[in-house]
């Protein structure tokens, strides 16, 4: 399922910094990872961990004046960060599709759904009007719209939340991209609709054999969707593994704490949930040296941490940042 060579996307030492009061602070701090063809790769973490900043950096959707993106993002061998804007526009939407969290703000309220799907075809292909309309109808059917002809000529406000998200997915997939970035695609939806959208994404991914980067805070969604997972904390990947390995053999203290604080996993109602001490530091107060999770587990002796943490391979494809995982125990 997962090939070792031939990554479709290769991120090397990515640093994305935002300007706060004239100074740049890294929200994504030295992230390296590779996405293979035909895999669902999940990036999981809490608010402020840098997962969305990472996703937006790939297509450079950050506001340029207040953001600095450094490192290498190689898509099929070409560095996206070295591209001119017009070259990038050839990749955006065509090669790499994007699904945003909130379809109501991501869709244009003044354009009909059909026109929004066709927009991307007009930019990237030389299809004529009839071909575009046919492709749009085909997509609306494949994303599970009950009445594709009706939806084609409706505006976003006429659709329910789940249907809007289906329309977003149709727009992202219209040019048959080889990579789709889905940033919290189901966070705004009800649980039954979430299940429908996740099943749909999985089915479409299998059919199209494209790769998906799934950004989420929800570990259960990761378990249902992903082949491989990266856990992010304070701008860094602290653990990366295949999904079964991560859930059954979590190593990093942060991953273990996160799993222990999930009420869906501890559901007898007995006992208390695990609470992670302290809070995620804000961008300008983030510790830049040593193990960034150390302040959240003060009962672990400082000698357990490395002064400049490196990745340790604990199993094939399973890497953990900082040696403290060997000394971690719950308080």
């Amino acid at each position: 399922m997962i090939s070792i060579s031939g990554a479709i996307l290769e991120i090397k030492n990515l640093v994305t910094s935002f300007k706060i009061r004239g100074e740049y602070y890294a929200a994504v701090d030295g992230v390296s990872l590779s996405i293979h063809p035909n895999e669902v790769f999940a990036i999981v973490g809490e608010s402020g961990c840098g997962k969305s900043a990472l996703a937006l950096s790939i297509l450079q959707l950050h506001k340029g004046s207040a953001t600095k993106v450094e490192g290498v993002i190689e898509y099929k061998g070409r560095n996206l960060l070295a591209m001119r804007d017009d070259e990038l526009n050839g990749v955006r939407g065509k090669e790499i599709g994007m699904i945003f969290q909130d379809p109501l703000t991501a869709l244009n309220p003044l354009m009909k759904i059909g026109a929004q799907i066709e927009e991307s075809l007009s930019v990237h292909t030389d299809m004529n009007a009839a071909q575009k309309s046919e492709r749009a109808h085909e997509l609306l059917t494949s994303v599970g719209m009950e009445r594709p002809n009706l939806v084609y000529s409706q505006y976003p406000h006429e659709l329910s939340g789940g249907m809007r998200q289906r329309a977003m997915i149709a727009i992202a997939l219209v040019c048959r991209p080889s990579l789709v970035i889905a940033d919290e695609p189901t966070t705004a939806l009800d649980v039954t609709i979430q299940a429908q959208i996740l099943d749909l994404l999985r089915q479409l991914q299998r059919e199209s054999q494209s790769s998906v980067i799934l950004i989420t805070h929800d570990l259960s969604v990761v378990a249902e969707m992903a082949h491989r997972v990266a856990v992010m904390y304070a701008g860094q990947i602290v653990e990366i593994a295949e999904v079964g390995e991560l859930f059954h053999n979590p190593k990093h203290p942060y991953t273990r704490s996160l799993l222990a604080s999930n009420p869906s996993l501890e559901s007898t109602g007995e006992g208390l949930l695990h609470v992670i001490k302290g809070m995620v530091p804000s961008l300008d107060r983030m510790p830049r040296q040593g193990c960034r999770f150390a302040p959240r587990m003060p009962w672990i002796s400082p000698e357990a941490h490395e002064s400049s943490p490196v990745y340790h391979t604990v199993a094939p494809g399973h890497e953990v940042l900082c040696g403290c995982y060997e000394h971690f125990r719950f308080e």
Binding site: V191, T192, Q194, A195, L198, D199, R202, D218, L219, S220, V221, V222, A223, E224, M225, A226, V243, G244, F247, N262, S264, L265
Partner: peptide, 15 residues
């Protein structure tokens, strides 16, 4: 049935 299963091995079953 819509609750995502936190066990990755069961994802096809739950779908």
């Amino acid at each position: 049935a819509a609750i995502p299963d936190p066990d990755p091995e069961k994802k096809d079953d739950s779908m």
